[in-house]
Design a protein around this nucleic acid. Structure first.
Lengths: 183, 183
DNA sequence: GTCTATACATGGATAGAC
DNA sequence: GTCTATCCATGTATAGAC
């Protein structure tokens, strides 16, 4: 992995863990092993580097989600597969966490990937729901995505990944009866 | 309001808006109109002041929630009243947002009010659900609290409070049929 | 109780040598 | 491309006068 790549990957990690406000150029350099000069050679500054990292986090989320959704099977199963996908719940969502960062939300370039990601995700799930239920697709999909994001919040508050699993189980319990299940 | 009180209230505002990492003593002084000397006279430092502010945010959340839950009526209505309570969705939850702050989560004193608040809230809702349904109270309550917290995340991502309302509507739509409704 | 002065580290970036 | 030196603002706190 070349220096530029290491800088982006380190920034992804640090943004995930500490957010934009909490991540300093110095910390990125230390984490990536790149020097001051290197960083400012490859990127114009913290903002530029963060944009690259956030964009990649967003692409990554999308690709992983799509992998769960394109499995074959009934809607309930595909949604359950996505919600139950292996996750490090205590780390939270690398995209969702950015919504709490005032400097990210105040900057339209940094904010756009975040906005687009959740718009896409909600739409994608709404499409799946529309195939097989009479639930309102948009509001139901929004609620399901919210369970994910809120599940992370609660897991972190409790210091236990089990709470994330509880939130998902609760949501799937509510879905039962509204969607035809596959087994 | 005396100086000490103004310092706490200003810190509550700033923690809500910018988090712990993003809030400087200087910003607190400017917002509260208190001088450097005043702040360090009343509190030992940023940490001490944040503890007072976080504690108060937690008490506040609890009191407001309790007000919705103690209304009379069937479980569905009391829960709907809480979820639909007037909120400034774009500002997010003053307690939930702290879960994204690495310095808060790493400090057991600052973290405890956050942990306790969500444990209480989930339990409280589980108790209401247990009265009138065969849903699993704990997981269902966890999912409902997660919809709240996730609704804030999605509303901020979209830049629209309507998304919060969508998440709540979706969740209540899923609850229907599982709980006896009152109207 | 509040003010001003001071201190020292860090944040974020630029300049120029190699 | 990478390194070191340098820069100025800010973060966070202490000291001591009033």
């Amino acid at each position: 992995m070349d220096t530029r790549e290491r800088l982006i990957e380190s920034t992804r990690e640090l943004l995930w863990e500490r957010g934009y406000v909490g991540t300093s150029p110095k910390a990125i350099q230390a984490h990536s092993g790149a020097g001051q000069g290197s960083m400012y050679h490859h990127f114009s500054g913290k903002h530029d580097l963060a944009l690259a990292a956030i964009t990649r986090n967003a692409e990554d989320l999308r690709a992983r989600a799509e992998a769960a959704f394109t499995q074959r099977g009934p809607a309930f199963d595909r949604i359950a597969a996505y919600l139950r996908r292996e996750r490090d719940a205590l780390r939270g969502c690398p995209v969702g966490r950015l919504t709490q960062d005032p400097d990210v939300m105040a900057d339209s370039a940094l904010r756009k990937p975040v906005e687009d990601t959740f718009a896409w995700l909600t739409d994608r799930i709404a499409g799946i729901l529309a195939e097989e239920s009479r639930l309102d697709p948009r509001t139901t999909a929004t609620a399901l995505v919210a369970v994910l994001q809120g599940g992370y919040v609660l897991a972190r508050a409790a210091g236990s990944a089990d709470v994330y699993a509880d939130a998902v189980d609760g949501a799937l319990g509510l879905l039962e009866g509204h969607l035809p299940e596959g087994n």
